[in-house]
Design a protein around this nucleic acid. Sequence first.
DNA 1: TTTTAATTGAGACGCATTATCATTTGGAAG
DNA 2: CTTCCAAATGATAATGCGTCTCAATTAAAA
Lengths: 150, 150
Amino acid sequence: MTTHGEGSLKKVFRDNQLKATPQRLDVLKLLMTCSEHLDAEEIYQRLLKKKKNVSRATIYRTLEVLVEHDFVRKLDFGDGRMRYEQNQNPEEHHDHMVCQVCGKVIEFYNPKIEDLQELVAQNHNFVMLSHTMHIYGLCSECAEGHNGNE
Amino acid sequence: MTTHGEGSLKKVFRDNQLKATPQRLDVLKLLMTCSEHLDAEEIYQRLLKKKKNVSRATIYRTLEVLVEHDFVRKLDFGDGRMRYEQNQNPEEHHDHMVCQVCGKVIEFYNPKIEDLQELVAQNHNFVMLSHTMHIYGLCSECAEGHNGNE
DNA sequence: TTTTAATTGAGACGCATTATCATTTGGAAG
DNA sequence: CTTCCAAATGATAATGCGTCTCAATTAAAA
């Protein structure tokens, strides 16, 4: 259902007056088949490992394009570099919990919070275009370690 | 009530085994009497204008110290530089709406959202240490402009 | 005062990202 | 299948925020 062939990936770009170059297809395909939250350098290294012909500059430019067109979400977890994740259903917004010990990222969705955010914005006559919520702390595994149960 | 004299500002540092230098006092005093969300460069420029003797490096170091001790909150609105705000009552957490046109920052507090955040964390056995919520979009004034009421 | 560890200033440095520009290429038109 | 050109790429220089280094200064304890 959400599985697309090479052809449909090309369509993604062509439908937006963008050339469907091999480099763009490689970046998009990688993000579409990856559940992690990669940064630009990680994307670059993974494509290199797959013998793909691509440069860092193109990675950044492609990511910019993908974000502009809502195919990819750009995330800032406050560690000095941006991360990217696929954004298949822009309707189905989710937020993130980031473990400050192991770096693990847990996604969650809470409709009540979503509704309250919209409400808060309305109360201030603010037109909400996007929003982010990050919870920082210790994931269950790392919290155990800190309790001395190692 | 929340107005402190020079003496009490010095106490803030001395109570934490930190020297109460003029530079530190200047930075802290500026943040304590400023409702805006300044970045390091803006703080530096404002102190220069007041003929204060301070360097950029010291601004950054002082901010780091103030954040560590919870006197100041470090905020990331995703535009590539950090902003700082006073943090008088760490209990009373608030979040931010950022206008992407004029850059205005509106603070808001919603206890229900706070509770739900804590709940979500607990459901994942996640120990929440801090959290941020940012709503991006258009403030009421800038939204009017976009409706053609200019 | 003397003393010393903490702090400062100036600038070098690091790192993620963006800009530049000559070269290449996707894909539309013929 | 060629021609053609705007769009895209690669290599690398440049940018900008923030951190680090280290010699000189200073807060504040003795």
